[in-house]
Design a protein around this nucleic acid. Structure first.
Lengths: 118, 118
DNA sequence: CCTGAACCTGACGTCAACGTGAGGTACGAG
DNA sequence: CTCGTACCTCACGTTGACGTCAGGTTCAGG
């Protein structure tokens, strides 16, 4: 599979895929002409990378954790890092939940105010 | 209250407070000498700004929504925007929850692998 | 009056995850 | 062989929320 097709299938840009390779998040073989060639598994890999980015992990963290996330084999340092990241995500969820609740209350109040005004 | 004290109380940097003013998120009166002077309510205001930033709102969005968040009076456009942001936060929470679950499973697996290896 | 801490205004630097050309090469169809 | 599209490698631009440095001013205490 070439880069354009992988981009369309995964929904990320061609530029992003090259960036992932530059950051050692994604590998590719090359055709004799120098074009990137990806195996089918690359699609899942890209989706995994996207998930981790969406979770707020940096590319540096992702490159450290990708091996154990895909293989299931980890050093103790990796395990620590995994736990740190999971807890960070949990804390972030708490923050967002608080903010959502706060906004929800504001919405209720201003809605009531508008109804009263109309 | 001067800027340094507000910074210490709120936990944000002096630079950040000046930035908030620049973005019209926060007002201040000035002493005859030109130094910023904040009322006590500024502390809550700063904390509110931080909460909204933490929720992923941009300063442009915050400056649009701050009036109705603090006064409870909103236009219909503001209400729409509020709902959009709340839903965006809810979607983000979903994403993070999925990512956390995924990491949690990875943690369980690699832990088991380590125990088995030792 | 003097001094050190806190404050002021520019204005350039940072960082991450790409976007966006520029200028050239590879590939598949006809 | 030629055309059009997809691909290649630099390499600079973007965005947001500040950090940081420079050069000068204000304030409170002694």
């Amino acid at each position: 599979m070439r880069i354009g097709q992988l981009a369309r299938r995964s929904g990320v840009s061609v530029r992003a895929l090259r960036y992932y390779e530059e950051q050692r998040l994604l590998e590719s073989t090359r055709t004799p002409g120098g074009q990137r060639d990806y195996p089918d598994e690359a699609l899942e890999r890209v989706q995994l990378i996207q998930d981790l980015f969406a979770a707020g992990l940096s590319s540096r963290t992702v490159v450290e954790l990708l091996p154990c996330v895909s293989t299931g084999v980890a050093t103790l340092a990796m395990l620590d890092q995994l736990i740190i990241e999971r807890d960070r995500i949990a804390a972030r969820i708490q923050d967002l939940t608080r903010a959502k609740t706060k906004l929800g209350r504001v919405i209720e109040n201003v809605t009531a105010a508008n109804v009263a005004q109309d």
